[in-house]
Simulated assay, not measured.
Amino acid sequence: MTAPTTVLVWITESTWPACVDAARERAPHDEVVLLHVSDDEVVAAAHDAYAGLLGRGGRPDRDPGGRLEALSGVAAADLLEAAAHRLGRPCELLDHHGRVEDEVVRAADGVDLLICARDGRIDRPGPHSLGRATRFVVDHARCPVLLVWPHGE
């Protein structure tokens, strides 16, 4: 008897439907893990901008970094829930924080397949059809990678 196959699906705001559909079609009996990664640099930039503009006298309760972090968490949970619903079967949900490409490569370590989507311009096939993070993941993941074209939804 063979061990169950684990498929990691990288969920992003703009390409998740195509990735989930690919998992549904190409891995109908495998264990599926849906991964979303929140880039903490955005929250840090908002905090730093607030601190820089108002100096040390700014009120912590008005720091937009905390509000952005809360909103990011809600948005990630909603996105993962929508992806799980579209998948239509039990799956594991992971919400990581950090440098996106590093987190995806780390999460892909030990899985049997990573599904992700091109995130560049569809009308421009070639190297520019992959964004920086996706290019890094494709180059560094230690597992097979299924790269799909996003579809408009």
Score class of each variant (00 low, 15 high):
A70G: 10
R67N: 03
T134H: 01
P4A: 12
R132P: 01
A83H: 09
P4W: 06
H151Y: 14
E13Q: 15
A27D: 02
P125N: 03
D95K: 03
L146S: 04
A18G: 02
A117F: 00
D139M: 09
D102M: 07
D30C: 15
S129Y: 01
V43A: 15
D21K: 08
D21T: 13
C143S: 10
R89Q: 10
V138T: 04
V7R: 02
D61C: 05
R56Q: 14
W16D: 02
H97K: 13
V20T: 07
G126F: 11
L8K: 05
T2P: 07
V74T: 15
V105D: 04
V111L: 14
V137Y: 10
H47A: 13
D119S: 11
A51K: 03
C19F: 02
R121N: 14
A3L: 12
A49I: 12
L53A: 15
E92C: 04
G126V: 03
R132E: 01
P17D: 06
P150K: 00
R59C: 04
G73M: 07
G126L: 09
D30S: 15
L71C: 05
V42F: 15
E41P: 00
S72L: 10
L130I: 02
V105E: 03
G88N: 13
E25Q: 11
H85S: 08
L35D: 08
A108N: 02
R56L: 06
V32R: 01
V148M: 10
E31L: 15
R132G: 09
A133V: 03
R26Y: 13
M1R: 10
R89H: 08
D139K: 07
A133H: 09
V42A: 15
A77N: 13
A84Q: 13
G98N: 03
A45L: 14
R121W: 01
L35W: 12
L93G: 03
L93H: 11
V43T: 13
A23T: 03
V37M: 10
D39G: 15
R56Y: 15
I115D: 05
